[in-house]
Amino acid sequence: MASQGTKRSYEQMETDGERQNATEIRASVGKMIDGIGRFYIQMCTELKLSDYEGRLIQNSLTIERMVLSAFDERRNKYLEEHPSAGKDPKKTGGPIYKRVDRKWMRELVLYDKEEIRRIWRQANNGDDATAGLTHMMIWHSNLNDTTYQRTRALVRTGMDPRMCSLMQGSTLPRRSGAAGAAVKGVGTMVMELIRMIKRGINDRNFWRGENGRKTRSAYERMCNILKGKFQTAAQRAMMDQVRESRNPGNAEIEDLIFLARSALILRGSVAHKSCLPACVYGPAVASGYDFEKEGYSLVGIDPFKLLQNSQVYSLIRPNENPAHKSQLVWMACNSAAFEDLRVLSFIRGTKVSPRGKLSTRGVQIASNENMDAMESSTLELRSRYWAIRTRSGGNTNQQRASAGQISVQPAFSVQRNLPFDKPTIMAAFTGNTEGRTSDMRAEIIRMMEGAKPEEMSFQGRGVFELSDERAANPIVPSFDMSNEGSYFFGDNAEEYDN
């Protein structure tokens, strides 16, 4: 993207840094990872977990959730003011799984939030270390993106479920800051804005008074975040219109849905970061690795190297396929839920299948599930090659597409044709070009129609051997075009429920 120079890199967003050079960025990201790792080690000690239990991804998720809940100030305040039966607002906890007599047992633990905050700050040299908290939120978000298709949420806001490739980060909490905003897809931002506008339509006082002023500035800020994701002048001009509207209503909703559809071809720039579970960072720190000293990046080879040398386990339900569970977590670790499966298959070195073909449910185990038949197995999170994460949407291309997802959002900077089903997408653009945004709409449609099938995206960008740390010898991959490109292809993934 041309304006790259004016933006802070995501590592800076990730670490609240002012302008830093590459070495400083690597050190501050490393410091953040160190903090998460030290916190995780301490929690495993508190909970008396064995090494194996500490490497269980379900335990990692519970521990991450506990610290996120302990620092969720708004919710904590709300819980104190609106006490609900049987919930102690000062405590947080969740299921911890232990191996007892050759069987997995679930144990519900409860801790004072104050105590968890103390352990977290102690692991982070006394700081609140917001960057580390956001990092864990993005890992949870990436896992949700890989596990669930947001059909219901899309339909509720009037969008087409086939636009799911635009929904990265749709389950990120509001408090995820600049680093969170960077990884949100165009569809996620559109959905947040539509929800806001709908509230304004239904509630006369939404934009009024002292609160209304705050609401208005939040609305304009979200519009600017979305505008910054678009790469064409016409899309940005249309966002200006939406932002400046005196009284946002149905016309703005129409414009936003139009823009979301246009992003299936004229893709937005959305950041991709490899955020790993805390149970990967903990053992690495415990083994003596100093992330701050060595430096770390979320968008280069580092996460690949770390996963190459990590042992992570997962509980497996009786009829689940461990290899499929591994694929789910591998995609989440690489922030690749909406990437082209052919690119992923090449990088991973084994075939990556669409969601609907995987015999696996989510990673988390519900409290009512029976533990008797639970097994555990090693997650295979290694890769054959590594590639640089991208934040450009890439230019655009036609490809055989599917009944489910009709476009992709690249996660890796790797040369390819970008699949999208042009006739299906263009069919949504018939007729409606009147109104105050008509010239911009016409211009956007013209650009979409001009998108050429034979153009290559990320020209000359390749993948790298894991021994090639400096990215000196790019390998331009070859793809098996007979395979499906979309992950949520004609899909039956479970729906995400809060």
Rank of each mutant, 00 (worst) to 15 (best):
A85T: 04
L79R: 06
D372F: 12
C44N: 07
Y289E: 07
M238K: 07
D160W: 09
Y313I: 13
G288N: 10
A237M: 02
L68E: 04
L307G: 04
T171H: 07
M167C: 03
A233P: 15
D372L: 15
L108D: 10
K351M: 10
S359G: 15
N142W: 08
N368W: 12
G37M: 10
K305H: 03
C164G: 06
A70D: 02
L79W: 08
N319E: 00
R8I: 11
N498P: 02
G349R: 12
M167D: 10
V242L: 01
T390W: 10
K227L: 08
G158N: 14
A179Y: 10
R150Q: 10
R389L: 08
M238S: 04
E53P: 00
G93D: 11
L133N: 13
I365K: 08
P303Q: 02
Q311C: 07
D468E: 05
K293W: 10
G180K: 13
M105V: 14
G490F: 11
S486H: 10
E380T: 06
D290S: 13
L381D: 12
K422E: 06
G158P: 02
T360S: 03
F429T: 02
A181K: 07
R75S: 05
I425E: 03
A85V: 02
M447I: 12
S170E: 11
R267Q: 14
G212F: 04
A234M: 12
R416I: 06
T378L: 01
A403F: 06
R102K: 14
P423V: 03
P83C: 06
V285L: 03
E375T: 05
A260W: 08
P303W: 09
G93F: 11
M456F: 12
L49H: 14
R152C: 11
L47I: 03
K31H: 14
L315A: 03
S310F: 03
A278D: 05
D160Q: 01
A427Y: 06
N417M: 00
Y97G: 05
E454H: 02
E14M: 07
T360M: 06
V183I: 01
T188H: 13
N124V: 04
G169V: 03
N142H: 14
N124A: 05
G288Q: 10
S274D: 08
G460I: 09
G132W: 06
L256F: 15
V67H: 10
N247K: 04
Q364A: 00
R26G: 13
M66V: 14
T350H: 00
P318N: 13
F464I: 12
A411H: 07
R382L: 04
R213C: 07
L298K: 13
Y148T: 13
Q308Y: 09
Y10Q: 15
I475C: 01
S274N: 06
A263Q: 07
M481W: 02
L110W: 10
Q4I: 02
V29I: 03
V285H: 15
Q459Y: 09
P419L: 08
L266A: 07
F338T: 06
L133M: 04
E64H: 07
S467L: 14
R355S: 06
N76G: 01
Q42F: 12
R400Y: 12
T130D: 09
G37K: 03
Q398R: 14
K325R: 13
R261G: 06
T424V: 00
Y281V: 09
K90T: 15
M66E: 07
L276H: 12
L306H: 08
V352H: 10
K198Y: 08
P173I: 09
S438K: 09
Q409V: 00
Q364W: 03
E434K: 04
L328W: 10
P322A: 14
L358M: 09
I201N: 06
G349H: 10
A263M: 09
V285R: 04
S359Q: 15
R174L: 06
N483D: 15
E64F: 09
A271M: 09
D88P: 05
A178L: 00
A2G: 14
L259K: 07
